[in-house]
Amino acid sequence: MTTTMTRAAAAVTLHGVSRVFGRGPAAVRAVDDVTLEFPRGGWTAVMGPSGSGKSTLLHCAAGLERVDTGRVMLGDTDLTGAGDADLTALRRTRIGFVFQSFNLIGALTAEQNVALPLRLAGSRPSRSIVRSTLDAVGLADRARHKPRELSGGQQQRVAIARAMVTRPEVLFADEPTGALDSTAARTVLGLMRAMADAGQSIVMVTHDPGAAAHADAVVFLRDGRVVDRLAGAGAREVADRLAAWER
């Protein structure tokens, strides 16, 4: 892993990235020669019909999935050839994840879940850091609750707090509102908007035009390729564009 002192302009950069699943005639090019920059301090939504490769693109960008060709850069760090230990360290310090299915650890309370990344990184997190992170997502009073005692929206906010407690460079979110009702979804999106406004880089995959409309920019994917972009569009405009690509 190489790190240079200069800060790159883009939070994450993909250069000619391809990812193929399967072999021979059954091979699927989930991501097909994608070159893309996710800007620092901006919120980018990735949209596309199901099977367009948007989740695989996110996994590749986050170093969870290896790429077959091309390069993935997190800031100035090349993830392409990084080993397991390097990627683990990145997940602890520079990358945060939020997923559709929350993925909290059921055995741990909300505050234990939030403290987990810090503890895994070997530090003994102060209660105040954990509490203030939970407070930032509006759940300071739920610190001692276990995931099953929380609503879906609350669980997702705990997941966001867990992702943010390490102050990551980039927050990757895969359908963060996919399992939420509209009220809970609005709360979560509002939270993410506030984070982006405060300078947090966010890459989000979604199929919901309403969610995508909260982002600064929308990238459209089809058959593993980037086919379109929109900036500062409303939900209607995003939906129309998506519908056009789904035809």
Binding site: A85, T88, R91, L116, P117, L120
Partner: peptide, 15 residues
């Protein structure tokens, strides 16, 4: 699945 989750939030193989 639980263990993969731990890895996802920054757990190392050793952990």
């Amino acid at each position: 699945r639980d263990l993969a989750l731990l890895r996802l939030v920054g757990g190392s193989r050793g952990q």
